[in-house]
C-alpha cells in the first residue's frame, strides 16, 4: 500500500510539470501584457520608455527560459511570486478568496450527496418504473441546465417573488453563519443541482450493476428482506464509484465556479481568474492554473487511495 502510494505521488510530479510548461508557453503566445493595461487604461498617457521600465521591473524583459526557470525555482520553494497587477504576493491574493470558493464547493458537494444518494438508490430499486423515469428526467435535466442560468433564475425569483436579494458582501461563516449562508446558499444550490445529477446517475448505475452480482442474488434467494440486502451489500459496493465521481467532480466544481461566481458577484477564485486573464497577469494565472491542477491531481490520488481502502481487491492488486 505504501509503495503504491509513493508511486502515485511520484507520478503527480511529471503531470504537474507538464501543466506548468504548457501553461507557461501558452500564456506567452497570447498578445499583450499587464503593463499596458496598468499604465494605459483610463486615459493613462505614458512614454514607451516608462512601459519598458515597468516591464523590466516585472521581469518581463528576461528571456523566456530564464523566466520559466525563475518561476519553477519559486514553485519548488513554495514562492508563487507577486501579482503583476497589484504587486501583492499571489498567495495572499488567493488566500483571501479561496475560503469563499471552497465553502461554496463544499456546500454544493454536501447538498448533492444529500440528494443524490437516496435518489440514485430509489431509481435503481424501482428500475424502469415511473419512479425511475421521473428521477432520470430530473437528473438528466440537472446535466442540461447551465448552472449560471439557474443562478440567474434563482436571483430573479428571490427578487420578484420575495423582493429580497442576497447580501453582496462576504461574511465569514464563523463571524455570522446566517449572513454567510444567506449569501452562499444560492450559488451552492445552482451548482449543486448539476453535481447532484452526476452523482445520482452514478449511484443508480452502480447499484444496478452490483444487484446483478452473484452474492446479491444469493442473498435475495435466501429470502432476506430486500431492503436489508440493499443496505448491507449493494450500497457498500455501489458507494465506490459514487466516491470516485464525487471526488473527481469536486475538482471540476472549483473550475466550474468561474462562471457562477460572475452571476452571484462572489469574490472568489473564479472571479480572480477571469480578472487575471483579462489583464494577462501571468504570475497570477499561472499560480491559479497550478492550484486547480494540483487540486485535480490530488483528488485523483485520494479517490484511488480510497478505492484501495474500500475495496480489498484493488489494494492487493
Amino acid at each position: 500500500m505504501l509503495r503504491y502510494l509513493a508511486r502515485r505521488v511520484a507520478l503527480m510530479v511529471p503531470t504537474l510539470f507538464g501543466v506548468a510548461l504548457l501553461t507557461f508557453i501558452m500564456l506567452r503566445v497570447v498578445p499583450g501584457d499587464v503593463v499596458e493595461v496598468k499604465l494605459r487604461a483610463d486615459g493613462g498617457y505614458v512614454t514607451t520608455e516608462i512601459l519598458e521600465r515597468e516591464r523590466a521591473r516585472l521581469g518581463l524583459d528576461k528571456p523566456l527560459p530564464v523566466q520559466f526557470v525563475d518561476w519553477m525555482t519559486g514553485l519548488v520553494t513554495l514562492d508563487l511570486g507577486n501579482s503583476m497587477w497589484t504587486g501583492r504576493p499571489v498567495a495572499e491574493e488567493i488566500g483571501v478568496r479561496i475560503g469563499l470558493t471552497f465553502q461554496v464547493a463544499l456546500m454544493a458537494a454536501f447538498i448533492s450527496v444529500l440528494i443524490a444518494i437516496p435518489l440514485g438508490t430509489i431509481s435503481a430499486l424501482y428500475r424502469d418504473t415511473w419512479v425511475d423515469y421521473v428521477v432520470r428526467i430530473f437528473t438528466i435535466a440537472g446535466l442540461a441546465v447551465p448552472s449560471f442560468w439557474l443562478g440567474m433564475l434563482l436571483l430573479l425569483l428571490l427578487l420578484t417573488v420575495f423582493h429580497w436579494s442576497p447580501p453582496v458582501t462576504y461574511t465569514p461563516f464563523y463571524e455570522n453563519p446566517l449572513q454567510n449562508m444567506a449569501q452562499l446558499i444560492w450559488p451552492a444550490l445552482a451548482v449543486g443541482y448539476r453535481y447532484a445529477a452526476v452523482v445520482a446517475r452514478m449511484v443508480r448505475s452502480s447499484i444496478i450493476e452490483v444487484m446483478r452480482e452473484d452474492y446479491i442474488r444469493t442473498a435475495r434467494a435466501k429470502g432476506v428482506f430486500e431492503r436489508l440486502v440493499v443496505a448491507r451489500h449493494a450500497m457498500r459496493n455501489a458507494l465506490l464509484p459514487a466516491v470516485t465521481v464525487i471526488g473527481l467532480e469536486f475538482a471540476f466544481l472549483l473550475g466550474g465556479l468561474v462562471v457562477t461566481e460572475q452571476v452571484f458577484n462572489l469574490n472568489g477564485i473564479g472571479r480572480l481568474f477571469v480578472e487575471a486573464v483579462s489583464r494577462n497577469d501571468f504570475v497570477l494565472i499561472q499560480a491559479l492554473v497550478m492550484l486547480l491542477a494540483a487540486v485535480f491531481v490530488t483528488m485523483n490520488l485520494i479517490v484511488d487511495v480510497l478505492y484501495g481502502v474500500l475495496d480489498p481487491r484493488v489494494r492487493n492488486a
Partner: peptide
C-alpha cells in the same frame, strides 16, 4: 478580445 490584448493591439 481580452483587455490586455486590446491594449497591445491598440498600441
Amino acid at each position: 478580445v481580452e483587455l490586455a490584448s486590446w491594449y497591445a493591439n491598440q498600441g
